[in-house]
Design a protein around this nucleic acid. Structure first.
Lengths: 332, 332
DNA sequence: TTGTAAGCGTTATCAC
DNA sequence: GTGATAACGCTTACAA
């Protein structure tokens, strides 16, 4: 019922190889070309991609594993990925793991040997088991939004962004700076940003008050609670650096609830530049990351790997560290 | 180099048909089963999906066409879709059209006869050309976030949501209500919401001031400009209903710039319940839509269609109109 | 420049 | 319960 290449060949009065050639390389005589074109235009024929894949071993599909699609950052990365991939005739297979590490393993395994020509992995953390599975994959992998040894990756410069932001605060005269972070298992947001904060203090010869360093999770509640601890300690900080906009919003709410003025009494800054950061009052001074660009870059690396017909990207140490922009608004 | 079913068969000392049966229905004797299981566990073998597709004519892939993945609503819908589909062993092929209608046509055509077992279409508007292409598709289609004749669809009750919100304002004593809308080509946000507003006034015997009805586009700038027009007209409205949170935020900013108090001088409400609506000051009274649910529902309908092995969903008039919740906050 | 034929890895039919 | 074997629709040597 649905046409195949043989039907087209018959209708055009040529052999199926000629039609195939027309569809691909295009080593076809003028009149055959004409006849085939006509038939294809009339019928709207499109070759079945899986039959083609079976023969060629390529699927023209790139698997993209995302931790959770319904966030603000993941879609931006995916946006970048789809933009460059679709320009290059690749389609994107989305695997939404919903923050389940098990699902990450599962999808990596599904993509193994199979189904896709390459995998772009956007995870929250990378464990030894991740590495083990990835090492067995025989399609190229690119890691995005996360640093990883031995694999090509594109990520954001969390350490320096946090350091820079802390120095910005120091430059404004703050010496007593509270920090609201998250657990260190999250390398980018947890570990790197905390290290950046610590490094800035150290380099500026500011002794760190250990009470100023608070760590929780990503929730609004955590941000509020930690901000509260910060202002109730003996030396209330004059500035608070929260590692995400969401945590900063929570801190702002907490400060407001206590009757504190921002930024006069306490300055608040963060990293993210999400939509809410420009709507909250006062508008948040924050750091912008180039998420869409990271998506684009990771796709570009993938295309390169694909072109060089590399079967695995293990030990390819190409990695791109993207920079950041400080967005100065009214909260500091 | 990468194993196939024949290799597994040899290793297990059975025929490939037996291995295939093991992989599928499972009509296999105990000892064969045991041997095969062992080999597969050791090798981590997974059958190539495209070879399977070639034979069975099924891909276990659902194409999802989204207007733009880097927004707040689309990912929520996709979230719902991926949740139910992945539970049912389907993968999702994302086609991000970036608001290009041409791309929508292109992807619909790519999906034609091909590549996917079904298409979930999330478009902004549906033209006759859309219909024409869809009619030719021979896989089932489900339309999400948009009403469409003759195709199964799940959408949000824009008309009644807007009517309800307007009535809420009326209930608060407002009679002079400004409206900030968008062009009617967007059926859901433009046409339906405007009609809901008009219907509420009519039913409550409030004569509509045509100057109160402003229409622009989705941009912040448009919202600001129209709000400005509204407060500069002779009878400044006591309330403004903007059709999206973003437009409402713009209106709020405009009112604040003019020194007006919200909600005392002018109330502001909208539809969306996006993240910014709970962060802006005052917090926005708005309407929540069940986007994730609409994604889930559309996926469920798709699964049903797939099960009934229907080749096209044309003329299947199943449609689901989802309800809404008024979120009462501080702006009205 | 074109056609013939083999083969990609699976499932389904049928006979044993 | 199991194993040959044909078939799915395409690409690609190779021959003509």
């Amino acid at each position: 019922m649905t046409l195949n290449i043989i039907d087209i060949a018959k209708l055009a009065g040529v052999s199926k190889s000629t039609v195939s050639r027309y569809l691909n390389n295009g080593y076809v005589g003028a009149e055959s070309r004409e006849k085939i074109k006509k038939v294809i235009d009339e019928t709207g024929f499109m070759p079945q991609s899986y039959a083609k894949s079976l023969r060629t071993g390529k699927t023209n599909l790139i698997g993209v594993i995302v931790p959770k699609i319904s966030t603000e950052t993941a879609p931006r990365v995916v946006q970048g990925i789809t933009e460059v991939l679709s320009e290059n005739n690749y389609d994107v297979l989305i695997a939404n793991t919903n923050l389940s590490v098990e699902k990450e393993f599962e999808y990596l395994n599904i993509f193994k040997n199979n189904q896709v020509d390459g995998v772009i992995f956007m995870g929250t953390k990378i464990t030894p088991k991740h590495k083990k599975i990835m090492d067995k994959l025989n399609v190229p992998i690119v890691v995005v939004a996360q640093y990883m040894d031995n694999y090509p990756c594109v990520y954001h410069d969390d350490f320096n962004a946090a350091k820079y932001m802390t120095e910005y605060l120091i430059g404004k005269g703050h010496k007593n700076i509270g920090f609201i972070g998250v657990y260190e298992e999250d390398r980018s947001v947890g570990l790197e940003r905390e290290n950046g904060y610590i490094a800035a203090l150290k380099e500026n010869n500011i002794e760190m008050d250990i009470e100023n360093l608070k760590v929780g999770d990503f929730s609004y509640e955590s941000g509020y609670k930690l901000a509260n601890e910060l202002i109730n300690k003996k030396n209330t900080p004059t500035a608070i650096f929260a590692v995400t906009d969401n945590l900063a919003i929570a801190a702002i709410d907490c400060l407001k609830d206590k009757g504190l003025n921002i930024p006069k009494d306490v300055a608040v800054v963060s990293i993210g530049d999400t939509r809410i950061s420009e709507v909250v009052s006062p508008k948040l001074t924050t750091i912008h990351y180039h998420y869409k660009t990271s998506g684009r870059k990771s796709a570009e690396i993938m295309l390169e790997l694909l072109k060089s017909s590399i079967k695995t990207s293990k030990t390819i140490k190409k990695n791109i560290k993207l920079s950041y922009i400080l967005i100065e608004r009214n909260s500091a």
